[in-house]
């Protein structure tokens, strides 16, 4: 290739790299804000809450997931502090009894069966193993929704980062010699 050809080719490579790394994520992901400016850190430090105080198991063993307004309004029927976030939360949700529409980063496809109780109580996994340091964060990260698949960008991790991809599940099961069959998760 001539020098001129090499330059033109390289410009093509650079343009694609730029578009792929900088432009593509802006196009493919739509950013939403969570309905409430929630701080896990404040709840853990000031109220001494543990993960399962709010993300609890029901009596029948099912996982309640993100708490409903009832749970929040148990403490926040009236303001407990002086933060703007709490004031907004009470005005927008507690007083009108409106359930916040939380955006769930960990949402899995319909064909996946996952039992929290098996992983937490039987395998003794810590919440952080899959959810990362969410429990100590001061703010909730923006919810970046893939425009095509509809899932959150956050669950698509890679090695070394908390991830709830099928690869990550398989790797962990393989490591623990618990990789039995596809039907373990796809029931």
């Amino acid at each position: 290739m001539t020098l001129r050809g090499t330059i033109v080719f390289s410009i093509g490579v650079l343009a694609a790299l730029g578009a792929g790394w900088a432009g593509f994520p802006r196009v493919i992901y739509q950013t939403h804000r969570q309905p409430v400016d929630f701080s896990h850190q404040i709840h853990a430090d000031k109220a001494g809450s543990k993960c399962d105080d709010c993300h609890a198991f029901r009596a029948d063993g099912t996982f309640a997931g993100v708490p409903t307004l009832d749970k929040c309004s148990g403490c926040h029927a009236a303001a407990m502090g002086s933060t703007v976030a709490e004031k907004n939360f009470i005005e927008r949700f507690v007083t009108p009894q409106r359930e916040p529409e939380w955006l769930v980063y960990a949402r899995q496809p319909e064909n996946v069966y996952f039992s929290h109780i098996t992983h937490v109580k039987r395998a003794n996994l810590k919440c952080e193993r899959c959810h990362g340091n969410q429990g100590t964060s001061n703010t909730l990260p923006p919810f970046q929704q893939d425009r095509i698949s509809g899932y959150s960008r956050d669950i698509w991790g890679h090695a070394g980062r908390p991830a709830m991809t099928m690869d990550a599940c398989v790797a962990c099961h393989r490591q623990s010699h618990l990789e039995h069959s596809c039907l373990d998760c796809h029931k």
Partner: peptide, 20 residues
């Protein structure tokens, strides 16, 4: 026209090194 093809070739090669 040859430049356009070279640019496109470069873009395709570069795109393979992006998440897109």
């Amino acid at each position: 026209r040859r430049d356009i093809f070279k640019f496109a070739g470069g873009a395709v090669a570069g795109a393979l090194f992006t998440p897109a």
